[in-house]
């Protein structure tokens, strides 16, 4: 006869269970955390639509972020989610301006192309549905309000908050950062995604970009949790890849966010040669990026 389950409630069993859990968790972490030197990702066919999540910070970080993103290709990165700390109206405003700017640029480009087309007569065959046409449609620029969203997160720490309560508010921020990571809210509520673009927007981000505000540490941590538990197959589909760019103002030493994140992000970029190889040998230098 099997012993009653209560006989399992011993200290040694508890210890054994804890050790097993610890070993399993460590192995899992080792498996998902990038190795010391980032291996180049194997080239793959580009999915028709991708979502990128951009963590904005206070004034300086936001400024630099939009310099980094100046050549953003909306044909590749079809949905942008900007994560902003609540109360940071400046960053939200800058995101709207940035999106308006790329929309304007695309319109001007389309007009120029249209003018070019009018000059040269086109012969339409097969009802216009040629391969090139379909391909061209697939690769259209994705600008405008239905291709981006702004998510607000509560602050991890208010400016004069005591250190004692900081873990609590940080945990609150962590919990609140899951919804924007899991999906961008649909443009029309209660409507299932219609196109590849909407499906990508309603999915986990393919890429997370950040340059060092405190919120970024928490968002990256949340993305690790998703990868750790492979939630919505985050890890097996290679979603939630992370790029950290150390501030251009950091010449001789890493920031606190940089030190914390250097081992866990997929790419860790610095902008001054002196910092190359810091962060446990993971810092890459490819010139000034801003």
């Amino acid at each position: 006869m099997a012993p009653p389950p209560s006989s399992l409630y011993t200290l040694s069993f508890l210890l054994a269970a804890l050790v097993t859990l610890f070993v399993a968790a460590s192995l899992r972490l080792l498996a998902i955390i990038p190795s010391r030197r980032t291996k180049p990702h194997p080239f793959r066919a580009r999915p028709p639509a991708t979502r990128v999540l951009i963590v904005l910070g206070s004034g300086g970080h936001t400024h630099e972020m939009f310099y980094l993103l100046r050549d953003l290709d909306t044909r590749k990165y079809t949905h942008r989610t900007y994560v902003v700390s609540s109360g940071d109206a400046f960053s939200a405003q800058r995101a709207v301006e940035f999106e308006a700017g790329i929309e304007e640029r695309e319109k001007a480009r389309a007009r120029a192309q249209e003018a070019e087309k009018e000059k040269t007569p086109v012969v339409v065959l097969n009802g216009g549905k040629t391969r090139e046409n379909l391909k061209g449609k697939e690769r259209q620029a994705c600008t405008g309000p239905d291709h981006y969203n702004i998510s607000f997160l509560p602050r991890a720490r208010e400016i004069h908050q005591s250190l004692l309560t900081t873990p609590l508010t940080a945990l609150h921020t962590l919990l609140k950062s899951f919804p924007p990571l899991l999906r961008a809210p649909p443009f029309l509520a209660n409507q299932p995604p219609q196109s590849a673009y909407q499906r990508a927007a309603a999915d986990l981000p393919d890429l997370i970009i950040t340059n060092g505000p405190a919120t970024a540490v928490i968002v990256v941590l949340a993305s690790l949790v998703l990868r750790f538990f492979n939630i919505r197959r985050a890890n097996s589909r290679g979603k939630c890849r992370t790029i950290y760019v150390e501030s251009f103002a950091r010449v001789k030493g890493l920031s606190l966010s940089g030190k914390l994140l250097s081992r866990v992000v997929d790419r860790f970029l610095v902008q001054w040669e002196e910092l190359e190889g810091t962060g446990g040998g993971r810092a890459e230098f490819w010139g000034v990026l801003v």
């Binding site: 080239f43 580009r46 890429l207």
Partner: peptide, 18 residues
């Protein structure tokens, strides 16, 4: 030395070639 633009680094991280 070799330099890269941030847009190129984004593509490379996701493995996009085109």
């Amino acid at each position: 030395r070799e330099t890269k633009s941030f847009a190129a680094i984004m593509d490379e991280t996701l493995g996009f070639i085109d």
